[in-house]
């Protein structure tokens, strides 16, 4: 059946069996391969996307259920080709990854957290990312990246003071 998906602000129509998950639709039909397949049963968080701004597991949604919803994938975060969002840059600064497989899900989760809670405590950060399994980092540098991003976010909102941003 025809499904129309709105991803990163762009609406595209695909022809999908009902059983096609949003994860497979993004990856195989729209070639947005930053959304990763880890478990396909809703535990690892590698497939995290934002749906109407809130993190969700793309493997737990059939594409047909998603038509009309606003979907954001990792490909929709960088402000321009070659540039990084503030969160992405913070992840690079603290080396909040190794293999990079969980990273898109972590970055999207961090974006959503900081939008709702610009100054999260360490506990709030830990809780926010606890639905995303990272097998490489032990989470330490991911937490640091989000803390760093929050600090920079606070700085960027401060009244302009020279070139402090």
């Amino acid at each position: 059946m025809k499904v129309s998906l709105t991803v990163n602000g762009e609406t595209r129509e695909i022809d999908a069996e009902p059983r096609l998950t949003l994860l497979d639709a993004l990856r195989d039909h729209l070639r947005l391969t930053g959304c990763h397949t880890g478990c396909e049963h809703g535990v690892c968080g590698a497939c995290t996307v934002l749906i109407d701004g809130a993190p969700a597991r793309a493997c737990l949604l059939f594409a047909v259920q998603a038509d009309g919803l606003e979907i954001t994938t990792i490909e929709g975060l960088a402000p321009a080709p070659g540039e990084l969002s503030l969160v992405q840059d913070a992840f690079c600064e603290t080396h909040a990854m190794q293999c990079g497989y969980c990273t898109p899900g972590m970055v999207l989760t961090a974006h959503a957290l900081l939008r709702d809670n610009p100054a999260p405590t360490r506990d709030a950060i830990v809780d926010a990312i606890s639905g995303n399994i990272c097998r490489c980092t032990g989470y330490g540098q991911i937490v640091e990246a989000i803390e760093l991003a929050a600090r920079r976010l606070a700085g960027s909102n401060a009244p302009a003071k020279g070139d402090a941003a």
Binding site: G42, G45, T48, I51, A54, P55, A56, R57, L60, L61, T109, D127, A128, S130, G131, N132
Partner: peptide, 8 residues
């Protein structure tokens, strides 16, 4: 569950 599962 987790925030991501409670969202759906």
């Amino acid at each position: 569950g987790h925030a991501a599962t409670r969202n759906r």
